[in-house]
Amino acid sequence: MQYCGSHKLKKLRVQADISADPLWCDRCLTNLDIDDFSLSKGLKQDLQEWIYDYGKWIDWENDGIVPNGVLLEQQHNDRGAELTKKVKQTLEGQYEVVFFPSTFAKIIVGD
């Protein structure tokens, strides 16, 4: 796959965001189609479920966090780290895979 101009995709980022697939080019931050990767149906489903949970700690109306928001974000990040390990194992030798956790709640509370 070609991204970042003419550079070959070498490093993937697993990151949650609203209405986006969980895989990104770590260099240019292009959101990548999860179906372009040889992941099992079960792992793809787990990643999609993880994405759907993104932002449950955010109070969208008040641009803040919900009660226990820091804990909810940490639980989401813990799950993302687990899933990243599975992606790494599956794509070993093809791509370097890194996890990029959410930091919204921690930034809001100044942690």
Score class of each variant (00 low, 15 high):
R27A: 06
W57L: 11
L71F: 13
G42H: 09
F37M: 07
L29N: 14
F99M: 03
P22T: 12
N68Y: 12
W60F: 15
E82W: 02
R13F: 09
L91E: 09
N77C: 08
T84F: 01
G80I: 06
D26L: 15
W60Q: 14
W50L: 02
G42N: 12
F100V: 07
K41F: 12
Q48D: 12
G93N: 05
G5Y: 02
D35Y: 04
T30C: 07
I51Q: 11
L43K: 05
N68S: 12
G93E: 04
L71R: 13
S102P: 02
V98I: 15
D111R: 09
D63S: 14
R13N: 08
T103Q: 08
Q89T: 13
H76T: 06
L23H: 01
V109E: 12
V14Q: 01
L9A: 04
D17V: 03
G55M: 09
I65P: 14
L39H: 04
D111I: 13
W60S: 13
D21W: 12
E49P: 03
V87R: 02
V14W: 02
K88Q: 15
F37C: 07
S102T: 09
N31Y: 07
L43D: 03
T103Y: 10
E61A: 14
W57P: 05
T90S: 10
A20T: 14
V66W: 08
D21Q: 11
T103R: 10
L72N: 02
D78A: 15
D26H: 15
F104D: 09
E92P: 01
K56Q: 14
K86H: 01
I34Y: 06
D46T: 07
A16V: 07
V87A: 05
I34S: 08
T103P: 00
L32A: 01
W57T: 09
K8W: 10
Q48Y: 13
M1G: 05
N62K: 15
D46F: 05
Q74N: 08
C28G: 04
I51T: 08
C4N: 10
R13I: 13
F104S: 03
Y95C: 04
F104C: 05
E49L: 15
L12P: 00
V109M: 06
L12V: 04
T103L: 14
F37H: 08
T90R: 02
G93Q: 03
A81G: 05
K11Q: 07
G110Y: 11
W24R: 00
W24A: 00
Q89F: 09
M1V: 06
V97L: 03
L47G: 02
I34G: 07
S19E: 15
S38M: 15
L39E: 03
G93K: 02
G110M: 10
V97Y: 01
S19C: 13
D17W: 12
C28R: 04
R27F: 06
G110R: 09
I108A: 03
G5W: 00
Q15F: 09
V97R: 00
T30P: 00
V97N: 01
Y54N: 08
Y54A: 04
K85D: 15
H76I: 09
N68A: 10
A20K: 09
D78K: 11
V70T: 13
G69Q: 07
I51K: 01
W57F: 15
G93D: 04
K56P: 00
R79Q: 14
N68G: 07
L72V: 03
Y3L: 11
E49R: 15
G110F: 13
I18N: 01
K44C: 13
R27C: 02
K86S: 04
D59T: 08
N77E: 04
L83R: 00
S38Y: 13
I18M: 05
R79V: 11
